[in-house]
């Protein structure tokens, strides 16, 4: 169990992280989301021991990292946004060096290198020097160094940044494989990647946690429960007349689409999808689409980054 309590970081007088609290269970894969400058990297660097917090504490399995900072290096593996590599070192030498530095014996380090190389798909470049690797392989090497010593917790800061679409898919599978037997914390701007690899999310804004929970929990808490998007073909007036008769309508917005197509966004206090469908068809309109709105991570992300409506942390 990892517990961050009241984690705070100032750069000079400027607060970067303010009183962040969260708990992460063993084996969880947790995604940190937020816009640039939200504090994601700062939080991850503090978790990795690369940066000291100005206040608060981090505990791993009940042990305070401030009291045993040297143990952190064996517990945690960290991939910064730019993979830290020694350009002139061969992949195998680099991983062996870091394995040894993080406490592995000679033979353990050798077998750990083989394991990390296999897990990250570096077999074909294992005898190449790091400066000859493509960006995708450098990212993989960055992950390999983060897992070579068998840490309990792996922290990945923007693991997919700068990768092409094929490499992103490969990286997603790699992270999913890693998440099967260890705790993973990762930050990314690619919401689709985070959704595919993480089971829980922590949303940061201006250095504070504004929401946390699973995708469903966040969606049900932060988006309007009854909001629906409707697409019809026909008269806008008829559509308005049909919908305003229904109970539970709070707000209706109409947008004229192509041709006679009309896009309607309805805010409601309850789920009125069935009634709305019947009313629109009964009014002689062609119903082209009807779906519940705002139930995905992207919608949640946009909502909390645009406006923070009250403190919602801790309700997950």
């Amino acid at each position: 169990m990892i517990i961050a309590s009241d984690l705070t970081k100032f750069y000079g007088d400027k607060p970067a992280v303010m009183g962040v609290n969260f708990k992460i269970g063993k084996g969880e894969a947790v995604g940190f989301l937020g816009l640039n400058g939200a504090g994601k990297t700062t939080v991850l660097r503090m978790m990795a021991g690369d940066l000291l917090p100005s206040g608060g504490r981090i505990q791993i399995d009940g042990q305070d990292l401030a009291e045993r900072p040297r143990r952190l290096g064996t517990w945690v593996g960290f991939l910064p946004e730019n993979p830290p590599i020694y350009p002139a070192m061969k992949v195998s030498e680099y991983l062996y060096y870091l394995g040894r530095l993080r406490g592995l014996g000679r033979s353990s380090a050798k077998s750990a290198v083989l394991g990390a190389v296999e897990k990250t798909g570096l077999s074909q470049v294992v005898e190449q020097t790091a400066d000859t690797l493509s960006h995708g392989f450098k990212k993989r090497l960055g992950i390999a160094q983060a897992i070579v010593h068998g840490p309990k917790l792996v922290i990945l800061d923007e693991p997919t940044s700068g990768l092409d679409p094929v490499q992103i898919v490969e990286m997603r599978f790699l992270i999913q494989r890693l998440a099967s037997d260890r705790t993973i914390l990762l930050s990314s701007h690619h919401l689709a990647e985070v959704r595919e690899t993480c089971s829980r999310f922590i949303l940061l804004k201006d250095g504070a946690v504004v929401a946390e929970g699973t995708e469903d929990e966040l969606a049900s808490r932060l988006t309007s429960a009854g909001a629906i998007n409707i697409t019809v073909k026909g008269s806008m007036e008829k559509a308005k007349e049909a919908l305003t008769k229904l109970d539970g309508i709070e707000d209706i917005r109409f947008d004229q689409g192509q041709g006679q197509q009309i896009n309607i966004n309805v805010s409601t206090s309850k789920d009125i999808r069935a009634e709305a469908a019947r009313a629109l068809v009964g009014a002689g309109l062609d119903l082209l689409g009807l779906a519940k709105a705002g139930d995905d991570l992207e919608e949640v992300f946009l909502k909390v980054t645009r406006d923070t409506q009250g403190e919602v942390q801790g309700h997950a």
């Binding site: 690369d50 040297r70 590599i85 870091l98 530095l101």
Partner: peptide
């Protein structure tokens, strides 16, 4: 300069 200082800062050494 190469960004590898993080490897030493996060290693279990003082």
């Amino acid at each position: 300069q190469t960004g590898t200082m993080v490897l030493l800062r996060t290693a279990p050494i003082s």
